[in-house]
Design a protein around this nucleic acid. Structure first.
Lengths: 246, 246
DNA sequence: CGCGGGATTGAGCCGAATCAATGCAGGTGG
DNA sequence: CCACCTGCATTGATTCGGCTCAATCCCGCG
């Protein structure tokens, strides 16, 4: 058996046991198609805080989040930065059809990525219409979510933004990568972001984020254990808090 | 010659003289491919203020802007609305792969659209990979622009937002659908939006938008003739005003 | 020329930013 | 094992930008 064949088998075995195989973009592919991606796949690991790539740098690769949380930031001219996206297991990231990355990508937690060289990936896209279609669908829905998020950030006050943020995280909890809480009404969340990162995601200051959490606690909507563990006591009430006139 | 054939020729003639043919998504198609779209094309006209479709309504058709300006709004639970997109000649709009429209579309000015029934269009997409690719590229860049715009709206103050808005319109002026101004440094713009619509686009109130225009005039960056005609006197200075620390 | 609706201007208020101090937890070294 | 240190988080006092409410203006139109 040739070395190439052996590597391919190893690669294939890795895909078949991949925790995100059935939810990531590669779900669109089967058999020989997945082999195509497999043959250019390379895993990468990052520590919390690592920069994956910088805004403006060369767009080398496209990646799928295997485990952990990544974020995308835009730098403002005055040096502030704003987080424009959070990426969880099975999400993809990368700058398609462009030489330069247009956002900075960072590891928010320890992170495992499954990476593909961009140009080879783009060639593969051209020959795998089902993959391009799958990504098209995902980008359409990301655009839709970004528009909704834009409206939330521009129009809602600090408390509502924080509530929306918690509800977004709670929705991630409903996904197959997080186990459900026993108590049906309460939902436990581990905040992936520091207060500073949360502020940068919500367009607020650290102090305002902190005060908003305090208000949510005083209103009896959440409890906290330390600074990262949040329990949503009443999802309905929190939803009303985020959308008072809904 | 059959009636069908005659219609197709008429349709074809219309496409070949279409002002946006070479800049809209249909630029990706040639010959028999464009015939495919042609055969399902129907023109529609709207008056300024008309609703094209309502958020939540059935997603009937995909459209290309032939002339005029359209916008996309999201309704907030409390009744306010926010404009999440402006569409100019050659842009496309519509909800792909979804039964329901997720935004309201309105004619901001008198408007001509070139429309395609959604389901037939989606079938065509599946069989015209170059069209799907073209739309994929456009949606990727719309996502990118939406992220940039989000940062502007969340992080910049009223005056900077208005300046950014004017610069965005000025950039549209650079496009093939608007003639250049004679004076190289000055740029004339016709505001497509009322103050109220501008406020809804910028996440401000009418009063604040109005005051911001006044400040730009006092700062000597623009002059105005009536309420719709703006002349940018110094694009560089306006850019600095929008991005002080750039 | 007068009317109406959008636009402008003004006064006061409110929510989030800023500035400043204190609290707390996790890690390190005595 | 405890004391200290460092970085993150919380809380408080003050400021400021944009919203609200209210009055007037002006442009386009009949």
């Amino acid at each position: 058996m040739s070395l190439a064949a052996t590597n391919e088998m190893i690669a294939d075995r890795r895909c078949s046991t991949c925790p995100v195989r059935s939810h990531a973009i590669c779900q669109a592919l089967r058999g020989v198609e997945i082999d195509r991606l497999n043959s250019m796949r390379s895993p990468r690991k990052y520590r919390r805080g690592d920069v994956i790539w910088e805004e403006g740098s060369e767009a080398d690769f496209i990646a799928i989040v295997v485990s952990g949380v990544a974020d995308l930031d835009k730098l403002l001219p005055d040096g502030r930065e704003h987080i424009v996206g959070l990426l969880f297991a099975s999400d993809w990231l990368g700058q398609l059809f462009s030489e330069r990355n247009k956002v900075t990508a960072k590891a928010v937690t320890d992170l495992e990525l499954c990476c593909f060289p961009r140009q080879r990936f783009e060639q593969a896209l051209g020959q795998l219409p089902s993959l391009e279609h799958e990504m098209f669908i995902r980008v359409l829905s990301e655009l839709e979510e970004t528009r909704n998020w834009l409206v939330t950030l521009v129009r809602k006050n600090a408390g509502q933004r924080v509530a929306d943020f918690l509800l977004t995280l709670a929705r991630k909890n409903d996904s197959p990568f997080c186990p459900h809480t026993d108590d049906a009404s309460a939902i436990d969340i581990i905040l992936p972001l520091t207060r500073g990162e949360t502020a940068s995601y919500l367009g607020l200051t650290i102090e305002t984020v902190s005060r908003s959490f305090t208000k949510l606690k005083l209103a009896g909507l959440i409890t906290m254990d330390g600074q990262r563990k949040v329990r949503i006591l009443d999802r309905e009430a929190l939803t009303r808090y985020a959308d008072p006139d809904d």
